[in-house]
Design a binder for these strands. Structure first.
Length: 509
RNA sequence: GCCGCGUUGGUCAAUCGGCUAAGACGCCUCCCUUUCACGGAGGAAUGACGGGUUCGACUCCCGUACGCGGUACCA
């Protein structure tokens, strides 16, 4: 690797929520930058004004913050290469497009959308499956290659709308080395004359990435595999603009695929299969439609990130759980796979489960509080964190603390009578009535004394302890679940325990 | 259609010519526990296909098949 300072960038288009795959692209950029002690830039590619979605940029920034993948430079914090929004850099691009026209690598095209459409119709009728504005077509279109110089000048002067298109060479090969895929090559006549500058004066992605990557001194450009087919356009632009020596090294990341079938994972798949695809909840400002996010679904950001990094990258050992520091240390772009990976929500939850076990109960309780609030239940932080500690080993999502510990917050509203009734008798009834008295007078209402008194009384009554533990559990929880039953009693406290026993006894009879 | 990129168990994946093909998730059996879970011990399950190259190929090369991506004045 050369000695150029490592600078990478994540360049999303602010059109909606941030997809899993987007976060993974951020992650790989971030890890690469940190590993090489370089810089990570956030650049907003909002060149398509018709697709602007309010709030999307703020959402993206918040996602990065939540994931712990914050950029060093960006629209939210500035930096030496500001502005970082392409819409605010609009004036910059035109000169480069003009420069390309001057050097013959681009040209003005005056074709109207209708003319373009007509051309496509004609071509399709002739059996051309997907007509491209390319070397063979451009000769019959209205552009500065076919029109007389005076006519072009006249059109320009009278303000006729036009775009600037790249002039793809007819016979040539573009070759480059992708850090993940090795040598990739294209025949130039198979790629069309992409629009570089739109009629509204905004650049297209193709021009903007190249110009901004150059201006922002980007050393390595990572993006999704879907960009591979347009790579030759970008490579040629670097060359035509005379910046070839500064061109970043490319890496096209594999796609994240849907769990069933094939194809790129989409928001729709999440809705269909019941799991989040976006990092955080996203509400479409137009339709008000809410798309669920990993964060609100009870994922810890460390787990989310760890799960994502394993989708397409492997250290080469059997280690699967990595701290951010370990990832920064171990990450290398060469170990990123070529093939796409299917997203597995079950495995994703397994990662989260691992992290929940390692997470401090106080933090877990804080993350769980919103669930209680939503239910209109208030408990003090210490109590909630005790519960979190008691049930976390069976939680794959933070929100599941409720599913596994709701009875710590509310009395059971129904009992698993099928598990009690068949074996219920007056001896058991009597046992519990007497034990209530014992418990009421117990000096120290904690695990050991509770268990001791239980054992003493079962022995005295000649009933097997096991016969009574399950009913006791059902009295307190309502069903066959939860942590050790004497722990539940201790946690609930004497009053609540006794009260629940009385209530249950009435229901069991 | 054309162009490009891929292809190891159901899924994530290791292997960079020596494989009796790791490990993880999930699944199944058992142990622990008179709840569930955690934990522990086992088990089933993999190199798309066909040709080369080689003493030897999952690994390299070439075809084929299949999949995906692209084919916009969207990114």
């Amino acid at each position: 690797m050369d000695h150029k300072k490592v600078r990478v960038r994540f360049a999303p288009s602010p059109t909606g929520g941030l997809h899993l795959g987007g976060v993974r692209t951020v992650l790989f950029n971030y890890l690469f930058a940190r590993h090489h002690r370089g810089e990570f830039v956030l650049r907003i590619e909002d060149t398509d004004q018709t697709r602007y979605v309010p709030g999307a940029e703020e959402y993206i920034i918040e996602c990065l913050r939540w994931c712990g993948l914050e950029a060093d430079e960006g629209p939210h914090k500035g930096g030496p290469f500001a502005p970082y929004r392409q819409s605010e850099r609009k004036a910059l691009y035109r000169q480069y497009a003009e420069q390309l026209v001057q050097s013959g690598h681009a040209y003005y095209a005056f074709d109207t959308p209708e003319e373009l459409e007509a051309m496509r119709e004609v071509e399709k009728a002739r059996g051309n499956h997907s007509p491209q504005y390319n070397h063979s077509i451009r000769r019959s279109m209205r552009n500065s290659l076919t029109l007389e110089a005076e006519e072009v000048k006249a059109l320009l002067e009278k303000g006729a709308p036009y775009v600037i298109r790249i002039n793809m060479p007819e016979n040539g090969e573009v070759q480059f080395t992708d850090m993940i895929r090795g040598t990739v090559s294209f025949q130039t006549n198979t790629v069309d004359d992409k629009v570089l500058l739109k009629a509204d004066g905004m650049p297209t992605y193709h021009l903007a990435v190249v110009v901004d990557d150059y201006l922002m001194k980007i050393s390595h450009a990572f993006r999704g595999e879907e960009w591979l087919p347009s790579a030759p356009v970008h490579i040629l632009l670097w060359k035509y603009l005379g910046w070839e020596k500064e061109m970043p090294q490319w890496a096209h990341l594999p796609l994240i695929l849907k769990p069933d079938g094939n194809g790129k994972l989409s928001k729709r798949d999440g809705d269909r299969l019941g799991f989040p695809v976006y990092a955080m909840n996203w509400t479409d400002p137009k339709t008000n439609e809410l798309t669920k996010g990993f964060r609100e679904n009870g994922f810890l950001p460390e787990a989310f990130v760890n799960m994502l990094v394993m989708l397409g990258w492997s250290k080469g050992t059997d280690q699967e759980i990595f701290s951010m520091e370990e990832l920064i240390e171990a990450f290398s772009i060469e170990k990123v796979h070529k093939g796409g990976a299917k997203f597995d929500y079950i495995k994703a939850k397994w990662f989260n489960h691992q992290y929940i076990q390692k997470t401090d109960n106080v933090r877990l309780a804080e993350l769980f509080q919103p669930v209680l609030k939503e239910k209109g239940i208030a408990f003090d932080a210490t109590y909630v964190s005790t519960i979190a500690g008691l049930v976390k080993e069976r939680c794959h999502l933070v929100n599941e603390i409720w599913d596994h510990g709701f009875f710590f917050f509310i009395r059971p509203d129904k009992y698993d009578l099928d598990a009690v009734k068949p074996k219920w008798n007056t001896d058991k009834q009597t046992f519990f009535e007497e034990w209530i008295n014992v418990l009421s007078g117990l000096e120290d209402f904690t695990f050991a004394p509770i268990e001791d008194s239980f054992k003493q009384l079962t022995a005295a009554k000649g009933i097997k302890p096991g016969e009574l533990q399950l009913p006791f559990r059902i009295m307190l929880c309502g069903g066959k679940f939860g942590p050790p039953v004497f722990t539940i009693a201790e946690t609930l406290g004497r009053e609540e325990t006794v009260e629940r026993m009385k209530l249950a006894l009435a229901a069991f009879a």
